[in-house]
Each structure stands twice: as C-alpha cells, then as structure tokens.
Design a protein around this nucleic acid. Structure first.
Length: 503
DNA sequence: CCCGGAATTC
DNA sequence: GAATTCCGGG
C-alpha cells in the first residue's frame, strides 16, 4: 500500500496523504474547465474536500464527483444525463474510472472498482442501477437531498417529511417549520443579501459545526423529485446553461430565469413552490424555508404559503424570484412542474418516488458526515461496534441502517423504475433473514430498509429522525393527497407494498 | 456487465 | 463512514 501511495504521489502528483486532499485533480474538475458554469470555490466548499475540516471521512464522495462530471459539458462524452431525470450513462467507463482515480489518487482505479463503489450507493439509495441499460445509473435525488441537508431536514423536518408525506404534512408544534430566525441560528453564515458563493461556508479555520452544511447553491437538482425537467439535458437540446453563473451545478438560484429554461416551467404564482423554491435572494429563500415547508403541507392551508409570500418575502414580491431551482439538466430538479405546481394535473411525467426532496439547491455538503442529520445520527449506534464478520453475515449491515434512517425515498425508484424489477433490493440483500430483521427492528414499522412501502400508511415518525427525538414530530396521518406526484408515488409504493406483502 | 460479500484502508 | 480491492457467482 505504501508503495502504491507513493507511486500515486509520484505519478499522479497527488498529495493524498494526511489530511490533505488530493490537490491533484483539483484542476481537473475543480477548476474551470467549464468556465461558464464553474467557479472554483463555488462549486463545493473547500472544506467539503478536506477531511480535516469535517468530522469523519469527508473527502469528495463518488456521487459528488459523478455529479461534477455530469455537470460539465466537457465530460459529456464520458458521462452524461440520459433518460429519466436523474439517470445518467457512463459512456466511457474507463475514463470515468480514470478520472475518479485521479481525483482520489487511486491510479489503479478501474470501472470495476468504481462500479463497486456505485453499487455501494444502492443501499444508501443514493443511486440505483437502471436495469437493462449498460452503464446506466440513476440518482435518487431525494435521497441525495436528505443526505446533503440533514440539517435542513431536521430543522424543518416537516418539510421533507411533508413532501414525503410521511408525516402528512401536518406540522406539529414540535416540528414547526424553521423560522428564519431558526435558520439564521442554524446557519449563521447565511449571507444577508446577495449571495455568497456559498451559503454556508466555513471559514477557513473555524468550522463551526453548525456552519457547514448547507449550501443552497450547489444542488441543482434538488428539488428533485419532481420532475422539472422531463428530459435530461442532453435530450433537451442545447439547454442553456446559464451563462452567467458559476453556480456549481450550473444552477443558479438567483437566476431569474432559472426555471425558464425549458422544462421547468415557472411556477404559477400561486403554486406552492413559488415562494419557496424560487425565492428570491437566497437569503430570503432560506428564510422562507419555513413556509415552504409548511406550505407543502396541505394545500388547503394556504396560510403558510401566504405568509411566506406575502410577508415574508419581499423578495419575491415583485420580481421574479430567483429561483433556486434546477438547472436545465437533469439534475435539475424537477420540482415543480408537475407536482406541486399544478395540482394535480399534470404530471404526466413519470414520477417516481423521488419527489420529496423539494429542497432547494444546495450544496454538497458531504453527506452523512455531519452527524447531525438523519443519517449521521443514528449511525452511531449501529456503527459503534464494528461488527464481526460473522455478524455481518447475518445480514446486519450497517449500511442499510443508515439508509433506513434516511429513507424517505422511494423505493419505487430504487427498483429501477419501469424496468421490471422484481426485487426491491431487499430480496436480494443477502440473507433475507438479516434484512428482515432489520426491518422489523427498525423504527417499528417504517421498515428501515424499505420504508416507503410498508410505511406508507403508517404515519410513522420519521424514523429518519428518530434519533432526533424531539425534533421529529409525530406524524399525523397523511393526507392522501399532498400532491399529485405523491399520488403517483403512492401508487408505486403501494405496488411495492403489495409485493412486499407477498413476500 | 453486474452483483454483493468480505477484508482493508484512509 | 466511504470507499478500495478482491473475488466468486450470475
């Protein structure tokens, strides 16, 4: 190993040792090969790449990397969005592997290994394979969001939960939506106006634990779930990447027309999302998070929404809100359109369960690392003791656990959409036995692993947050129809559920 | 190709 | 925790 590392350093000029990340490839992807979209520094907060800055392993994660590539035009020939939203194809596996190897200073990286790492995301539900299509995978954006915004999630548990309709959208007092103040406190660094390159950036040396986490500008797709774009960018034609922005994912929240591009229709004024998702200044957007979230709730209750728009946000008032939405590409999330926006109509898009994440763009904070979030939280327990091999064999996996916490996503998706996928990963998961144990053990009912399904009805306390305790409110029953998309999803879930039942 | 277990590394 | 590396199996 050592030798290898050396080799790495020598050959790749990487300094991968110690806490430093590999500078090596910084120029590869971090610097502006794609000037228009990329601004070094904006893309990912530096700290995101520095392990020392954050707890746990925090180097760039593969999926972040994939998104990076996906975002750059120059890599279109290597990897590109294709198919459904969130779906991408690795056109040149070897090259992607090579790039990844460079980034991670793993000269011996190859597609086989990379794909293993990708598979590793299956359990986490961050990705899943599109069956039948070679080198084709699909992001589960909602998951991504959760992973990246655990804090957000927690703070505004209602938000995601609502979207997932896990909690029925009813915000209980406990989970009151985040108020602007709260947000501020959570993210002190929130820029007041304008926008910083990052919402939450950690100052160089002082990372506040709280400080890191959210960057709304980084995630284009977040809204994910809802298909804002029906097609991948590539299919969209020359999608206009907003030229003037350097937002990381090519998505600029502030861009007034962010949505206009094509697929993302602007939201109707009254749409639930309008204010939140396209909030004006970032700041306001954040501050509005509360409503947004709350507004996700039952349509009937417009109060929240109103509040948001009216009072809250001035920003939007007149103008057009800058949107935090998605970019033209796949990643870009889909928010709106469908689902929320119109009530039920629309949606012709195929929706999958990813709806949830209605989040806003954000940054990649690196996943589960913060420890706060859903994921992070409970992980501790599980991870505490290393499992002995034998234990592992029993099916007690760590991963799954983590997922379960996060699991808000859809399974439907996971099972590879339309492809007839007979199994939900469960089946295959090694030893059913083990898995099932997990399920039962997990937050009662929610089924950690396959949450969606079984948990559909159960209001469930968002187990994801279970560890958070207080934060997570008791879910109320969900209103059957939070949004059209949900409905769709439900359908999926039900189906899945049925399957489960059978098994 | 793809999958997932196991061991190992960082 | 998140890979990386091996690897047997489909």
């Amino acid at each position: 190993m050592r030798a290898q590392r050396k080799n790495c350093e020598a050959t790749w000029e990487c300094r991968c040792s110690g806490g430093m990340d590999c500078n090596c490839v910084s120029d590869l992807l971090l610097t502006p090969p794609v000037p228009t979209l990329w601004t070094p520094g904006i893309a990912f907060p530096d700290w995101a790449y520095k392990p020392e800055s954050s707890p746990g392993s925090r180097q760039i994660q593969l999926w972040h990397f994939i998104l990076e590539l996906l975002q750059k035009e120059e890599y279109q020939g290597v990897i590109a969005w294709q198919g459904d939203y969130g779906e991408f194809v690795i056109k040149d596996p070897d090259e992607v592997a090579r790039l990844w190897g460079i980034r991670k200073c793993k000269p011996h990286m190859n597609y086989d290994k990379l794909s293993r790492a990708l598979r590793y995301y299956y359990n986490k539900r961050i990705l899943h394979k599109t069956k039948g299509k070679r080198f084709t995978y699909k992001f589960n954006f909602s998951k991504v969001v959760l992973v990246n915004y655990p804090l957000l999630d927690m703070a505004s548990s209602p938000f995601l939960l609502a979207q997932n309709h896990f909690n029925g959208g009813a915000a209980t007092p406990d989970c009151s939506p985040v108020t602007p103040e709260a947000l501020q406190s959570l993210f002190p660094r929130l820029p007041e106006s304008g926008r910083g390159p990052s919402l939450f950036e950690r100052s160089a040396g002082a990372p506040g634990p709280d400080g890191d986490k959210l960057r709304l500008d980084t995630f284009p797709f977040l809204g994910s779930g809802a298909p804002c774009y029906s097609k991948p960018p590539s299919l969209l034609g020359p999608y206009p990447r907003n030229p003037s922005f350097d937002y990381p994912w090519g998505f600029n929240p502030y861009l007034p027309g962010a949505f206009s591009l094509n697929n993302c229709p602007k939201l109707p004024p009254g749409s639930l999302y309008s204010s939140h998702f396209y909030p004006n200044p970032l700041q306001s957007s954040l501050s509005q998070l509360s409503h947004p979230f709350s507004s996700l709730l039952p349509p009937g209750d417009t109060t929240g929404a109103d509040r948001g728009q009216t009072g809250g946000t001035n920003g939007s008032a007149g103008g057009q809100p800058p949107r935090l939405c998605i970019p033209p590409y796949p990643g870009s999330l889909p928010l709106g359109r469908t689902e929320l926006g119109n009530g039920g109509t629309g949606v012709g898009d195929r929706e999958r369960g990813e709806i949830n994440a209605g989040v806003i763009g954000g940054g990649l904070s690196l996943g589960l690392g913060l420890g706060l979030g859903l994921g992070g939280v409970s992980m501790g327990s599980g991870g505490g003791g290393r499992q002995s091999p034998s234990e592992r064999r029993k099916g007690v996996k760590q991963d799954p656990e983590s997922d379960s916490e996060l699991e808000i996503t859809d399974l439907s998706d996971c099972s590879s959409e339309n492809e007839n996928e007979p199994d939900f990963s469960l089946g295959k998961e090694s030893g059913l036995g083990g898995r099932s144990h997990l399920l039962e053990a997990k937050s009662g009912g929610l089924g950690g692993v396959l949450p969606p399904l079984s948990s559909l009805p159960p209001p469930v306390s968002p187990h994801p947050l279970k560890s958070l305790g207080p934060l997570t409110p008791p879910p109320s029953s969900l209103p059957p129809s939070l949004s059209p998309s949900l409905t769709t999803v439900d359908r999926h879930r039900e189906t899945e559920t049925l399957k489960l039942a059978h098994s």
